[in-house]
Amino acid sequence: MINSLVQAILLGGYYALIACGLAFMFQVMRIINLAHGSLAILSAYIVWRITDALAFSPFVSMLIVLPIMALIGWLLQRVILERASKGGELLPVLTTFGLSIVIDNLLFQHFGANTRSLASYVGDLSWESYEVFGLWIGKLPVIILCTAIVVIGGLDLLLRFTPLGRQIRATAFDPETAGLVGIDARKIAGISAAIAMMTVGISGTALGLRGTFDAYAGAPQLLFAFEATIIGGAGSLWGVFFGGIILAIAQSVGALIHPQGFLLGGHFIFLTFLFARIYLNRDFFTLRHWLGKKTTKVEQHEN
């Protein structure tokens, strides 16, 4: 019981990692990127390719992939999102969904139907565990959880204390006025997308290390990220962190109830939070409400 809880929290670390990029982009650009999961899989494949071809450690490959992902993010913003978001709020949904189909099938075309994993490239790390109070805690999941904390903490600090973060918050809050004080909204959007895609690169690597992936694994990753974001209240990155953990716990509870209940448990908690958000006090069930001022909020219009 305790063991499953611990495992769930560790899994939640992965969800937090994959969700934070989605939430970041949503907060800053008001866009939910439906290609988010597919891009994570894309980065996982690139990491795998580099690792396999050059015999690097996946961690080194990831460092190589991060700038690639940043470039992809910047291009995504410049080529697709910028144009799409001018056409209203529905167009980004359609274009990013279309993009995800392109990415998924290109990956399938290129890498075939076999599942891949990065686990075999990190040797013992993939199964090594710490023993704590009689519980076996995998080293790798702990690393992933810590990475999630570092990434989210880093984004939080960036937003709060750097000039860039200030400009990002200002643009998210009121793009027009941001322009009037001299902020280049296009540049900020490009940088934000690049940052979001770097987190996607990290989470893609984490996914590959944790288990296996295939070309069509993007969709579930998108749904997990989306669910964690909504559960976390979408307004705060730390909220998203706890959203990921809550999602993972609900999934484990679901799995305990019924052998096929893993995903259903997650969906159920997601719908509950959504229900609460809609029908109760808007904030009541979100972590933002409970954690209040302790979490960072990226300021935004609520209208």
Partner: peptide, 21 residues
Amino acid sequence: PEGRRLFTEMTIEENLLLGKT
């Protein structure tokens, strides 16, 4: 701008610093 259009959830100092972008 009309109506000030400050970044209301930021501090005065942050608002001013944004002017220095």
